[in-house]
């Protein structure tokens, strides 16, 4: 195949000697503009290797890195946002919510900060999850739903062992604190009856004195809860760990407690303010 170079009768140009099904290729030279473009590309590549990082462990003469480029851009963006962030830092969440301009900015910024930091436990729309992740969109609050209460909860967290002011008191495990499982069962019936969802009235009646003895201090006489302690309301339809009897029995016997990090050491004051306004607007905010 290689030795069949011949001169084409029409164009007078030699063929390459390759032939496929009778089709032969003319051995025309490359157009010179093409060739020079090719040489120029080689020269450009050589220059590029010297100036920019192209080989492993070689930085290039200009010292350019995409990482520096990125941090520079980020610094620029932060500088641009700084005047607004300063205002958000200086104002209280309630003041921010009252100012349409600040509120719009805080809702947008809070949404992003929420998705980054909070959605992992509380869900993308603040809906929470059974198992101790409270919904932030409903009207039930462990520590209160005012701007100040939300702000404090975000700042200090709950039962995290890192912030001495963290929210929440640990509930005792009553199976270990002296109640028999039969008694736990009776208390559970009584607790369910507080929200009108219980079934066994006699068991509930047996549980009533046990409730007064063991639970009233934190959860209140009618099960209204205590926000200072983070003791949940028991007379509503919202259950952190499930409202069926087995879940309630388990909660009383072995205790439950949610943990939330303290965000004051992790997030900027402006971000916490924006988060407060955003969470307040999810649907459960109290005035």
């Amino acid at each position: 195949m290689a030795d069949k170079r011949e001169t084409d009768a029409i164009s007078g140009v030699s063929t390459t000697g390759h032939e496929w099904d009778g089709i032969k290729e003319l051995d025309n030279p490359m157009p010179s503009w093409w060739l020079y473009t090719f040489y120029a590309c080689i020269a450009f590549a050589a220059l590029w290797v010297v100036l920019y990082p192209s080989l492993p462990f070689v930085r290039g003469v200009l010292g350019y890195t995409t990482r520096n480029d990125f941090t520079g851009v980020m610094r620029e963006q932060q500088a641009r946002a700084e005047p607004m962030l300063a205002r958000l830092r200086a104002a209280t969440p309630a003041e921010i919510a009252a100012d349409p301009e600040l509120r719009g900015y805080a809702l947008a910024g809070g949404r992003i900060a929420f998705a980054t930091n909070c959605a992992g436990c509380h869900g993308s729309g603040g809906q929470g999850a059974t198992g101790g992740f409270p919904s932030l969109a409903d009207d039930d609050w462990l520590y209160g739903g005012t701007f100040d209460a939300i702000h404090t909860t975000i700042s200090v967290g709950a039962r995290n062992g890192e912030n001495p002011e963290a929210r929440g008191v640990q509930m005792p495990a009553f199976a270990a604190a002296g109640l028999s499982m039969a008694q736990v069962d009776d208390v559970a019936e009584y607790v369910l009856s507080l929200s009108g969802t219980g079934g066994d009235a006699t068991a509930a009646a047996r549980g009533a004195p046990l409730y007064v003895e063991n639970c009233v201090a934190c959860h209140g006489e009618t099960g209204e809860g205590n926000r200072d302690l983070g003791a949940p309301r028991l007379n509503d339809r919202i259950w952190l760990y499930g409202g069926d009897k087995a879940s309630v029995v388990r909660t009383i016997a072995y205790a439950r407690a949610g943990v939330m990090p303290s965000w004051s050491s992790r997030l900027d004051a402006a971000t916490i303010n924006m988060l407060t306004v955003y969470v307040h607007a999810l649907g459960g905010g109290e005035r």
Partner: peptide, 18 residues
């Protein structure tokens, strides 16, 4: 209609959509 969550259960047992 907001899809996350599709609805919120309120403390009195009411249901709310956003």
């Amino acid at each position: 209609a907001e899809r996350a969550p599709p609805f919120v259960r309120l403390s009195d047992g009411g249901i709310r959509n956003a």
